[in-house]
Each structure stands twice: as C-alpha cells, then as structure tokens.
Design a protein around this nucleic acid. Structure first.
Lengths: 334, 334
DNA sequence: GAGCTAATTGACAACGTTGTCAATTTGGGA
DNA sequence: TCCCAAATTGACAACGTTGTCAATTAGCTC
C-alpha cells in the first residue's frame, strides 16, 4: 500500500498534524517545514486517502449528475460542461442513470456520499426526487426546471421566450400553418416551449390548430412519426418546429422519405443546437441554448449551497439565440 | 444529520456491531433480531456512510471511466454500458476527462478513491497512464487496446478482421479504388483497422495506393476534409471507408456538397454503428461493434481484478458484424 | 538575556464503519 | 437438571484523516 500521513510525518520528522496542514495548504506552517514535508510526500509518493478525509470532514468530493434517458444528445453537452467544471474545482462527476435504478437512488444518496446533485429534465421537475434530496439534506441544483422555486438554485434559458421567437421567425417567413412537435408533457421545458409557440401565434392573430401539435419523445424516431402524422393531415403544415434537434433530424428524414424537399417545400427547425444540428443535411436552423455553460453555472451555484446550505438559492437565466442555418425558408404556398 | 449505526443500534436495542452485520447481509443473525434492526433502520431513515465504510474496508464503490475527447459518440455507448453495469453491481461510475486535467490524474487516483479504472482508446494504449495505475496498484481494464498484455484484462473486437471484411465487401461490390479515412495514428484501433484494410487489398491482388489513405481525427469535420482531399485526387476513389461513423457522416456531407450522390456515385461506409449511423441519410452501412456489451464485460473483468488483484487478467474478443444499410452500392465505373 | 507576544507545532480525540475475538445465549442430549 | 457445542451477540480496536486546544518555539523589545 501507499504511504499515509503518518509515514510522511515520520520521514519528514514532524507530527502528522503538520503534514495534514501542509496537504491542505493551511496557513501557519513555516516555509522550511512546508518544504520538508512536501519533499517527503513526493519521495514517498503520498496520496491522500479520500475516504478518511471525507469521513472526518463530513463531506464529499463527488457531484452526481442524474440522468434518465442516457441517449439524448442534450445530455452529452450538459455532462461535458459539468465535467469540466468539476475538474477545475476539485470535484469528480458521478453519472447515474435513474431509469436503471429500479428501486430509487437510495444508495447513491447514502449519507455523505455525494456533495451535491445536478438535476436535468425531466428530474428537474420531479417532486419525488426533490423531496428525497431535501429529506436527506443533500444540496441540489435544477437545470431547466419548469419554474424556479426557493428549494434549490436553478439555471435555465427562457424557453417560453425562445420558442416564441422562433415561432415568430417562422411567421415572419410567411408560414401560418406551423406544426409543433413537443417533448413529453412531463418535461417542464416541453410545456414552456409549447406556451411560447402559442404566444407567438396568438400575438400574430393566427388560430391555434391543436391537430398541428404532436407530442414526441425527444427522440429521432418520434420526430419521424410525428412528422408523418403531420403530413397525413388534410392540410399539412408548411413549417415544422421540433422541440429538440434529435426530433428535427427525424422530421427531416421523414420529409425526405416522402420526396419533399427541405427547405424548398417545407421548413424544419429544431431546438438545443447540439452536435447533430450542424451535421445533418441541410444544416439545421435551431434555437441555441448554451448547455455547457448552463451545466458549469449550475455546478457553481451548487457549490455555493454545498458550502452554505442556508445561502439563498440563486436563479440564473442564460441568454439563448436563434441559429438560422439552412433548414428554413419562406412559405411557398399562400 | 441522518442516523448512524449507533442510533439504529440504540433504537433496536442491540449492539452497533449487530446492526453492521444486518446492513451487510451477513450470516449468523437471528431472524427476529434482523427484523428488529431493519425496522429501526427504516424508521430512522438510516443511510450508511460510504466514506466510513470505504475507509474501514480499504475499498471503494467507485469506478472511473477515463475519456479524452468527450464529444465522440463512441463514448456515449461505452458510458451507458458501464453505467448500467455499475447500477446492477453496487458501483457508481465517475467519468473523468483526462484532457481537462492539465497535471494528470493524480488526485482522481488518490489512494483508495477508485476501486478500478476503465480505459478506452487512446488511453488503452497509453503507457504513461498504465504505469501510473500500476504504480498505485489500481486495477484497470482496457477497452479496445492495440494488443492484449498481461498487465490488465481487456475487451475488444477483432478490428483488423472487421476492417478486412468490410474492405473485402467493398471489393466484392466491384470497387478497386477504395479510400480509407483512418483515425489518429496514436489510436491502436486506427492501426489495426488500417492493417485490415491493407490485408484485404493484398489478398485481392489490388495495389495499395498511399494517396487513398487519409488520417482523420475521428471527428465529423475531419471526415469532411479527408473526403475533400480524396475527391481532389487525379483519380478519386469510388468507395470510402471511414474508420468511424462520425467521419463517415462528414464524408457523406462533403460528397453531397459536391453534388455527388451516395450510394449511386460513390459508396461510403463507416465503423462503430453508433446512433448517427441510422440517423443520417442515407442510413450508413457500417461495422457494428457491441460497445455497450464491451463496456459491461470490461467492468465485469475489472471487478474480478478488484476482488483479487492476483487473478489472471482475462482477454475477451467480442463478435462484430457488418450492418449493410443503404450507403453502399456496386461500383459504377470500371 | 529576561520577558512577552505571536507564530508554529504537537497531542489527542473524533468521524462512522468493519474486523477480531471473546462473551453470552440457545438448544439438544444425557 | 446439567452440560456442551453451536449459534448469536457484543466489546473494543482500527481504518487515515481533520478539529480542538494546549505546548513549544521564535522573534521582539527593553
């Protein structure tokens, strides 16, 4: 086994408490002593024992990212952002798939195991999980919750405004029959984006046709099948707004399958601006949300709560933008 | 704070050692006692303290997945496979981006922090990391190493044979000028796939043209630019074999950009069979490797080494297959 | 160089669990 | 009823670190 603090202390000729002080970069150690200890630690290839440290400190250096459907490309960016933040701040990221946990997260959340938890949709809106976390007094942060509350900090973009803007953009292009592929209704973001879509139509004096609204699953195949349904309508839409890019990619595929051209015959836009958006053909016009930033900021807010559980939970709204690539165009039909 | 073992012991009227026994499902506890303890634990909402347990057991319930370029879709599947295995086996997965760690992984690998480590390309072939792990006697497993060794177990497919088969398939389709987009040469898998490509050409009596071989970066843009280079050749290839699907997607995009049709004018095939392969148009013909399985099996081999560091490292080769979707066709030109 | 204060260092307990081994209880046969 | 082996339970130390507080040392001033 590798060396302990006591080994280092003996080798450096000081007490093990002094070694501890050096290891934690505390003040009040003479420079000469510090050097002696550091040399001894290097020589012995000393690595601190995290379990002992965490036990004594009643803390942890682990942050959990709880996800439910690991194959969403959305998650990739969140994870990267969180991972980078953790690296820079002395934490490690534990990624846990709640859907693979039949009987809940009890062992993951065992006392002191996690310093904090990052929740993404749909868990951001799951009252069950949040109650568990509060019961165990584990700090957590919510990414893209439907609405902010005072239980935990949150980071989001203004989904309603973003969806409204994109819809208005389509209206400006001359589209009046705009299909909407929503996410699952248990996602707060789905509801917010739907609301933004409705806002735009109402503001523009257009009627909302419920048949133009199709609930997808944030997945590629669900984008295909919703699109198929929309095209089978007696009066199909001239533009389709998918609530994420995976579904937009599915929509484009289904459109092509039917021999319909994008964007010449139909406009298709997405949401998120993940990797697939710039990779498919035509490159997707979409709503960009700064997912990596959101994750990093969420981690930062979480840290504040880890440090002081009484601190006021902060709520950050990050800016979004419309990235208009090549999958949109003016409405051909009148 | 939540309850400790001693609280439960007091509440159940037994010694804390007995509670410990119940918590660990040990033999030799009377059923009535066990029940009493379990009830008390439930009432008090007892959660074991992982740090204390790990300290005393000199172990950990954490497995690290070390990655270097988090945006490769390959990683998604590996991670899902590893995560699921961890859930089922009482571990948690820590995902760590080594490229975000300027000064190495020392703190991640601090004594006892990780029960074991899963290495994927290119770290599977990185002697530095492996030496670090051996020095600290942290068990590890290698996914898709260039060659197996006796330091650690490994899981892979036969990349050379797979690349050979795919190349032969293209030859059978009548192609004789086959472009190869390799991965970076520091990836063992790149070298193995290149070797398989060469094997097939040689066995078929075709000459190997080095200009038809372009080194990519396993990324979409690198697939585009290699393809561009290949098409700019005086005698461009009639088929392109990309060493992963991301690059194949880039190749298809660049092909379309030039007004060339896939598969009518040129055949493009990939490698991995990740999500993008069935999502792009046309659906990609590719080599399928069972990434999730590979990760799960790797974790299992790792566990064997965690349990007994002296156990013989095992090496598993999983079957691959050719998934011929719609991006390939016979050679038009003679 | 004595005396004082501030800086530095050390002794010891505590964190919550599991391992070791001894003590106690149980159950069955004589 | 007593005795013995087996089953069950408990007492106590140990894991490696950090927090508390006391002890020691260094650096000044006079």
């Amino acid at each position: 086994m590798s060396a302990t603090i006591k080994d280092v202390a003996q080798s450096a000729g000081v007490s093990f408490k002094t070694v501890s002080r050096v290891m934690n970069g505390e003040e009040g150690v003479r420079d000469s002593t510090r050097k002696k200890v550091q040399d001894a630690a290097t020589t012995l290839n000393f690595q601190i024992n995290t379990s002992a440290r965490n036990l004594r400190r009643r803390g942890s250096n682990l942050i959990a990212l709880i996800i439910s459907n690991p194959s969403r490309s959305y998650i990739e960016n969140i994870q990267i952002g969180a991972m980078e933040w953790c690296s820079r701040n002395g934490f490690h990221l534990v990624v846990e798939d709640v859907s693979a946990h039949p009987k809940g997260l009890s062992d993951l959340l065992s006392r002191g195991a996690m310093a904090g938890v990052i929740l993404i949709p749909p868990m951001s809106d799951d009252p069950d999980i949040q109650r568990q976390l509060i019961d165990k007094s584990i700090p957590f942060v919510r990414i893209a919750p439907e609405t902010a509350n005072d239980k935990a900090p949150s980071v989001r973009i203004d989904d309603r405004a973003a969806a409204r803007e994109m819809t208005k953009k389509l209206i400006t292009l001359g589209h009046s029959r705009i299909g909407l592929i929503t996410g699952p209704s248990e996602f707060g973001v789905s509801r917010n984006r739907l609301a933004g879509y409705r806002d735009a139509l109402v503001e523009s004096g257009l009627t909302i046709e419920e048949t133009l609204i199709c609930e997808g699953a944030f997945s590629y195949p669900s984008g295909q099948s919703c699109t198929s349904d929309l095209f089978d309508l007696p009066a199909p839409p001239t533009a389709i707004f998918a609530s994420n890019d995976d579904m937009a990619a599915g929509a484009i595929a289904e459109t092509y399958r039917r021999g319909i051209a994008v964007p010449a015959d139909v406009t298709i836009v997405g949401y998120d601006d993940v990797a697939v958006a710039s990779v498919i053909s035509p490159p997707l016009s979409t709503v960009r949300q700064p997912l990596k930033d959101m994750a990093a900021q969420a981690a930062a807010l979480l840290l504040a709560r880890i440090r002081d559980a009484q601190s006021e939970p902060q709520h950050i709204i990050l800016p979004h933008s419309l990235v208009m690539r090549a999958s949109h165009g003016p409405c051909g039909k009148t």
